[in-house]
């Protein structure tokens, strides 16, 4: 019985949160990796573009809520998502046209693109704060839980409860769908293959008659969809606050690099590696230890390896270790 309780506690406090956080990171890192693979720079505006996508979705959600539109028990935000994606696509395509295209034409060094992306980051940051403000925004509705901790306890008679939030369920399902769809697109459609070809060998792709501007445009649209979805899922799961999206930049970058920049499969693996490390290192293991260990060995403290404030340190340390020992990442990425 104690063993079962320990498993349930592990699932409740570690596995489920880490899987849903990992899914969010993976979707975000897919965007970073695609931009890196096709446009060949690290996009610092990624986090704030995520905030932009989430913001538009929130605004549409509020509007729908005011009209009484609902898809209970699912959150209305899912219905608003396509609008968010459309607006974000428009936004990233505009920034590409106004900002990045020029640097592509003059074949600027990657670092110049990064600088420009910092400019875009400032602007996005300003726009989001200007429109929706810097504070916390609530927009989640519908049923909060698929499974409540209390119901689980009553059902199983265990001491530990297992709570499964709707947002976590949606996140996991969405991540599976998106990854499947994206890989199908990249591996089985002409456009997807041309994107891979362009990322692999730009000169040869040009020689083969692949239109670079089209590849870039399709990439931005996919990235817009990915970041909007990741942003909304994160907002539903935790809460929407512009600054937290900027802070997501570090774990997202870490996921993409750990997996191997430019490699979509790596981005997904990286997302989960980072998420699981963050959650396991900052979780107070006492609860589980109490079930598993004999009384004499019970830890006196919380048995928490690091305080939750250090979660960035976890992604950072993993990042550094991977960079030092395997600079191309776990899956082979580009190391230009």
């Amino acid at each position: 019985m104690d063993f079962l309780n320990a498993i349930v506690a592990l699932a409740n406090f570690v596995l489920i949160p880490a899987i849903s956080y990992g899914s969010q990171l993976a979707i975000g890192a897919l965007g970073v990796t695609l931009i890196y693979g096709i446009l060949r720079f690290s996009n610092f505006a990624h986090g704030d573009s995520m905030a932009f996508g989430a913001m538009v979705t929130i605004l549409v959600t509020w509007w729908m809520q005011s009209l009484g539109v609902s898809i209970h028990p699912l959150p209305t935000a899912l219905l608003a998502l396509p609008f968010g994606i459309a607006a974000t696509s428009l936004m990233v395509l505009t920034t590409d046209r106004v900002v990045y295209r020029f640097y592509r034409r003059v074949k600027a060094k990657p670092i110049v693109f990064v600088m420009a992306s910092i400019g875009v980051m400032f602007i996005m940051n300003g726009i989001v704060r200007f429109i929706i403000g810097p504070g916390d925004q609530r927009f989640a509705d519908g049923a909060r839980f698929i499974m409540k901790a209390r119901d689980f306890k009553e059902m199983t008679g265990l001491r530990e409860g297992l709570a499964f939030k709707t947002s976590q369920g949606i996140t996991i399902i969405a991540a599976v769908l998106i990854v499947a769809l994206l890989f199908w697109f990249l591996n089985h459609t002409r456009t997807g293959k041309s994107m891979r070809a362009f990322s692999d060998n730009e000169d040869l792709a040009l020689l083969s008659g692949i239109n670079p501007e089209r590849v870039v445009m399709v990439t931005w649209i996919i990235v817009a969809a990915l970041i909007t979805i990741a942003g909304v899922l994160y907002g539903l799961d935790k809460s929407f606050k512009p600054f937290t999206y900027f802070q997501l930049l570090l774990p997202i970058f870490a996921s993409a690099i750990v997996g191997g920049l430019g490699n979509p499969l790596g981005a997904i693996a990286g997302g989960f590696v980072i998420a699981f490390s963050e959650v396991t290192v900052t979780y107070a293991w006492k609860k589980i230890a109490v079930y598993l260990l004999p009384d004499a060995l019970e830890p006196s403290g919380l048995a928490q390896l690091l305080s939750t404030d250090y979660k960035f340190a976890v992604s950072f340390v993993i990042l550094i270790v991977v960079l030092l020992f395997k600079p191309t990442g776990l899956f082979k990425g580009q190391s230009v």
Binding site: I257, L323, S335
Partner: peptide, 28 residues
């Protein structure tokens, strides 16, 4: 010592990370 000698944007991300860690330490 750890990040120089790697690509330029890796240094950027490493420094971004170290800043967050220093701050986490000072807050915590």
């Amino acid at each position: 010592k750890t990040a120089l000698g790697l690509r330029s944007d890796y240094l950027a991300i490493a420094t971004l990370g170290i800043a967050e860690i220093i701050l986490a330490m000072m807050k915590n």
